[in-house]
Simulated assay, not measured.
Amino acid sequence: MRNFWSLAVLGFAIAGVNISLIPDVWVFQSQPAAGAVVSRQTEGGGADAATQLTGESENPEATKQQTVSSFPSLFWDFNNLPEISYSQLLEVLARRADSNNTERETAAQPEDIARFEKVVQYAKQQNLPDRSIGEIVQAIADNFLGKPYAEGLLDKSGAEKLIVTLNKFDCVLFVETVLAIARGVAVQDYDYQNFVNRIEEQRYLNGKMNGYCSRLHYFSEWINDNQKRQTVENITAQLGGVPMNKQLNFMSQHRSSYPQMVKDEATYQCIVGVEADLAKTAVNYIPTNQIKSIYSQLKPGDIVAVATDVKGLDVTHTGFVYRNADGNLGLIHASPAGEVTVAYDLQRYISRVESAIGIVVARAKTPN
């Protein structure tokens, strides 16, 4: 369990002090103000956000390297206080939100709904439900080729909100969106609200949005949590992966780059607890020079995350295995270079990403 919250903080939460963990509204992309550690954090940190640190040398227009600074660690003294678990605190905060009848607003841009309906019609016309889940994923991903890349979409508003968009993506948002649609298609569920529910299930701890810290910021955490719910299976070890052997603490070590943590000590302590929990789980990866040797074991639609040697970080980017017309395996992804595109050869692409050391692979599971 993530034992890092003091009873003092719990008391503040119960008493009604706003520690910015419970969202006041539930909003889709209609909010004008809205990136993992993988591009769903604000300007610094994470997969795509770390691409700002690492770069992608395959494209000369890739995001340039940036630096992030650390922030003094603690405002409060937690040393001598009793502890409760992370999950216990989230439950208390959730009950508090319910007791206050917190309004949850759900709104969606008409163009997103129209885009969703267009993809659904395509799925029906192509009889996609008759295909494997991986083939469905690739076919759905194809529908978004050329859509623009946009970073930080989930972090442009203060409170955590459920952002859904089908017209622009960061790398994790692209993976989540395609996977959520594909899972619906696999069971012939074409309801837009159910698609939105799947986004929430994939993005947040235990499938429920409960503030900034409940978002699965580290992609290793994203894989672990979705594997618990049988959404995906981490197959990296089966493919011959080797241990990464590093402490994941990029977010806490670059606190000043995350406004949610700068402004809220409780949120910072929550992220520290997430990182402590991640330390209990081994993270494996396939070294770059061995990727081509596992092509025969990969399937179209497999989720690929780019493992990195950036200190404190697990991955810097993510996308899907893509089977080209000639059978060669590439990567379809929302590229920081500008849009959703296909890199023709997976190993060659990874070898050109600065600071990349290999890949982590997860496979979508067929929904019940």
Score class of each variant (00 low, 15 high):
3 N>S: 15
7 L>P: 00
9 V>Y: 03
14 I>T: 08
15 A>K: 08
15 A>Y: 10
17 V>N: 09
24 D>N: 15
28 F>H: 02
28 F>Q: 03
31 Q>C: 07
32 P>H: 04
35 G>C: 04
35 G>P: 06
36 A>P: 03
39 S>N: 11
44 G>A: 10
51 T>W: 02
55 G>R: 09
65 Q>H: 02
70 S>N: 12
75 F>K: 09
87 S>N: 14
98 D>M: 14
101 N>Y: 13
102 T>G: 13
103 E>I: 09
104 R>I: 00
105 E>M: 12
111 E>F: 14
112 D>P: 04
118 K>N: 08
120 V>M: 15
121 Q>D: 15
123 A>N: 12
127 N>V: 13
133 I>W: 07
142 D>K: 15
144 F>L: 00
146 G>H: 10
150 A>E: 14
151 E>Q: 12
152 G>T: 15
155 D>T: 09
158 G>V: 09
167 N>P: 01
171 C>G: 01
172 V>Y: 10
173 L>S: 09
182 A>P: 10
185 V>D: 15
189 D>K: 15
190 Y>H: 10
191 D>W: 05
195 F>M: 01
196 V>W: 01
196 V>H: 01
198 R>E: 08
212 Y>W: 09
212 Y>R: 04
214 S>R: 03
214 S>H: 05
224 N>M: 10
230 Q>K: 12
235 I>E: 01
236 T>Y: 01
236 T>Q: 01
238 Q>W: 09
241 G>F: 08
243 P>L: 15
248 L>E: 11
250 F>G: 01
256 S>T: 08
259 P>Y: 09
260 Q>F: 06
261 M>L: 14
265 E>A: 11
266 A>K: 15
271 I>W: 03
273 G>D: 04
278 L>T: 12
280 K>D: 13
282 A>C: 00
286 I>W: 06
293 S>Y: 02
301 G>A: 02
302 D>F: 06
305 A>I: 00
305 A>D: 08
307 A>Q: 03
311 K>R: 00
316 T>K: 13
317 H>R: 05
318 T>G: 03
319 G>V: 02
321 V>R: 00
322 Y>K: 14
325 A>M: 06
332 I>E: 02
333 H>W: 01
334 A>T: 02
336 P>N: 12
339 E>P: 00
340 V>T: 04
344 Y>E: 14
356 A>H: 11
357 I>L: 08
359 I>E: 10
362 A>F: 12
367 P>T: 03
368 N>H: 09
